[in-house]
């Protein structure tokens, strides 16, 4: 068996608004459009992936929050309806997806070897979180690849950002090791926004773009700081700044997804490709790809 590899990693945020705006047949709500900059960014990310051969998508999601360890999906098929608890008016999505349970279990075991507390989720009635579905749809609308879904352990709440990062660095390393041992080619998604202070009201027409902007300038400045570090390949500095960034902008990086991704990619020192930056109900969202092949050039 040849050695497996991570063919690409991506920051792939999950605002359900982006699915809503595209009017896919799976979603019951319909829109007139909206958030084009981000949706076109996802198009560019998909284009960059079209040249890649990969077997599985591994998603680390903030919206499956766990407090007792990190959990992994352990059932092969899930088919149900996902209704967003925050934005039910725009996201009621019929999903039908396949899980690579073998790889899921392999990452679970590898993480356990790192000393992390882990658990397989084996209840077939479990409903998949809308973060996984949104990021999964926007990256691969055909759903023709199996996924591995990893919960976000909220150790940041119980301890602090530093401890959360330490655990996510271990989880990233464990993920990379498991992928390499599997012989599979994997795409990794960090399903999170950057700055994450929302508006607390919604326009009558959710896709009214005259109302969309960053919640405050502080968030914008921090988002740009972090994105520029990614563009410059300074991901270790990014990790060092992450606790402050998370604190200052109530960033969704608190879930650990991005730290996990950086670790799994072994802290890229090559330039990331920024496909888009935009806001959704005031939060900062960037679609960014890391192609390890660039490291070899």
């Amino acid at each position: 068996m040849s050695k497996g590899e991570i063919v690409m990693g991506a920051l792939a945020p999950h605002p359900p608004h982006l699915v809503y705006a595209e009017n896919p047949p799976q979603n019951e709500a319909t829109a007139e459009g909206g958030w084009e900059e981000l949706r076109w960014g996802y198009e560019r990310l998909r284009d960059s992936l079209s040249e890649k051969d990969y077997d599985v998508i591994i998603i680390h999601t903030p919206h499956w929050a766990t407090f007792v360890g990190t959990h992994f999906l352990g059932v092969e098929k899930f088919k149900s309806l996902s209704v967003d608890p925050i934005f039910p008016n725009i996201f009621r999505y019929n999903y039908d997806l396949t899980v690579d349970v073998e790889l899921s279990k392999a990452i679970h075991d590898s993480a356990a070897e790192e000393g992390l507390l882990v658990k397989m989720m084996e209840n077939p009635d479990f409903r998949i979180d809308y973060g996984t579905i949104t990021s999964g749809h926007l990256v691969n609308p055909k759903w023709d690849k199996p996924i591995v879904c990893i919960s976000s352990n909220r150790s940041k709440f119980y301890f602090n950002s530093e401890l959360m990062q330490a655990n996510m660095i271990k989880l990233g390393k464990a993920t990379r090791r498991a992928v390499e041992a599997s012989g599979k080619k994997a795409l990794l998604l960090s399903s999170n926004s950057l700055s994450h202070r929302h508006f607390t009201t919604e326009p009558e027409i959710p896709e009214d773009m005259s109302k969309e902007h960053i919640t405050n300038h502080n968030q914008y400045l921090w988002d740009m700081k972090m994105i520029n570090l990614m563009k410059e390949g300074k991901t270790k500095e990014l990790i060092d700044l992450m606790p402050d960034f998370t604190e200052q902008t109530v960033a969704e990086t608190e879930a650990g997804c991005l730290t996990w991704l950086m670790s799994a990619l072994d802290f890229p020192d090559y330039k990331a490709t920024v496909h888009a930056y935009g806001t959704v109900i005031g939060t900062g969202n960037a679609i960014i790809g890391w192609d390890p092949k660039k490291a070899k050039i």
């Binding site: 929050a65 959990h71 608890p85 925050i86 209840n123």
Partner: peptide
């Protein structure tokens, strides 16, 4: 256990029905 962001939401579906699994204590 039901967080909202856009103001305050009030459940009004006449007869909600589902088979539910807790995301933490699924076992």
């Amino acid at each position: 256990f039901w967080p909202s962001i856009l103001g305050h939401q009030i459940q009004a579906y006449p007869e909600p029905e589902w088979t539910y699994v807790d995301e933490e204590f699924h076992d």
